[in-house]
Design a protein around this nucleic acid. Sequence first.
DNA 1: GCGAAAACTGTACCGATGGTAGGGAAACGG
DNA 2: CCGTTTCCCTACCATCGGTACAGTTTTCGC
Lengths: 205, 205
Amino acid sequence: MRKGEETRAKILDAAEISVLAKGFAATSIDELIAETGITKSGFFYHFRDKNELAKALLERYVENDERIYDEIFSRARELADDPLQAFLLGLKLLSELLSDLPNGHPGCLVAVICSHERAFDRDIQEINRQAALMWRRRFGAMFRDIMQVYRPREPLDVDQLADMVSTVIEGGIILSKALKEPKNLPAQLLVFRTFIRLLFQPAAS
Amino acid sequence: MRKGEETRAKILDAAEISVLAKGFAATSIDELIAETGITKSGFFYHFRDKNELAKALLERYVENDERIYDEIFSRARELADDPLQAFLLGLKLLSELLSDLPNGHPGCLVAVICSHERAFDRDIQEINRQAALMWRRRFGAMFRDIMQVYRPREPLDVDQLADMVSTVIEGGIILSKALKEPKNLPAQLLVFRTFIRLLFQPAAS
DNA sequence: GCGAAAACTGTACCGATGGTAGGGAAACGG
DNA sequence: CCGTTTCCCTACCATCGGTACAGTTTTCGC
C-alpha cells in the first residue's frame, strides 16, 4: 500500500547515504531504523535480510542512474542535430551536473558492490553486471550513430569505446574521493570529451 | 625481529586477499588467524585493532604498487629513447601484465578504502590521498617529458591528463569486476593508449 | 463504518564478531 | 642465561545480524 512504500523508501534513502559513505557492512540495521524511526521488526517486515536490502538498494540506484542518463542525453539530442555534437554536449551537461554537486559525487553503488564482491550473492552481482551492460548498450548506440557520420581517426571497438565512458566515470569517482577533490570527476569527463573530439575530428587538410 | 615480521606478513597476505574479495568489514579476524595459524592474542600483538591492520595493509599495497609501476616504466624507458614511445610502450606492457592475470585484477585497495570512506580514520584516508598524488606526479612527469618533444593537438592540463591514467585503471578494474570480463581492464588501457597516441600525433600534413 | 489485510511494535533470544584484560610460556638474540 | 619478542590461553563484554512470535495499530477496499 501507500504507507508501506513510503517507509520502505525512507529506509532505502537512509541506507543509500550510509552505504555510500561507510560501505555496506558498516551500515548497521540499528542505525537505519533509528534514522527511519521504526523498530527492528518493522525493518524485517520490509526486508527479509540485509542482502535483500542491498538488492533493493542497487535496483533503485540503477534505475535512477538510467533515468538521469536518459534525461541528459535526450536533452543533448534535442539541442544538437549531429550525433557527435549531441554526445559531446551530453558529456558537458553531465560534467556540469557533477560539478554542481556541493560535496562531489556521493559514490556509485555499482562500485561499492564490486569492492564487496564475494560478500553478496549471485542475484546482486547479476544486477550489477546488467547495469554495466546497459551502459555499454547506451553509449555503444551513440557511438554507432556517430560512426555513421564520422570516421574515427583510429579504428576502435565500439563496445570498448562505450565502456570507456563508464570507466572514466567510475574511475573519476574513486579518484575524486581519494584525492578529496570533487572537481576531479567532472574534469576527467571533460578530458575524455576532448579525446572523443580528437578521435572523430576530420583529418587536417 | 625476523619471526615476528614473517607472521605479520602472513597476516597481511591473508588479509589482502580477503579484503579485496569481500571488503574490509566482511574480513573477520577469526578468519585471518585461522588462515595464518595463530591465535587472536597473536593477532592483537601485531595490530592494536582492525584499523591498524587496514593501515598496514594499505601502506604495503601502495608500496608494492609503486614498485610495479617503477619496474614497468623504467623497463619501457630502457627500450625506447623517445618519451612518448616509452610511455606508450609502458601502457602496453602494463596492459599485457594485467592481461596475464588468470582471474583478472584482484582489485585495488585504494578503491576499496574509497568505497568505505567514513569507516576509516584520517590517517588511512591521507595515505590514500598521497597514493593518488604519487600517481599524479609519476604520470605527470612523463607527460611533461613528452610535451618537451611533442605538441598536443589539444591543450590539456598535465595533472588532469596524469590523473586520467589512474582513472582508467581504477575505473577499468571496477568495470572488469562488474561485467565479469577480466580482459576489460587491459582493453581499456589500450583504448586510452590510442587516445594518447592521437593526442600527440603530429598534425597530418 | 467494518472487516481484513497491511504495517508495524515489543520482547526475548541466538551466534558471530571486534575488542579488552591479564597471566603466562616458548623462542630467540646478545 | 637473561631479557625481550612473540606468541598462547581463558574469560569476558558490547554490538550486530537475524529469528521467533505474539500483539497492536493503520490503512484501504467495499
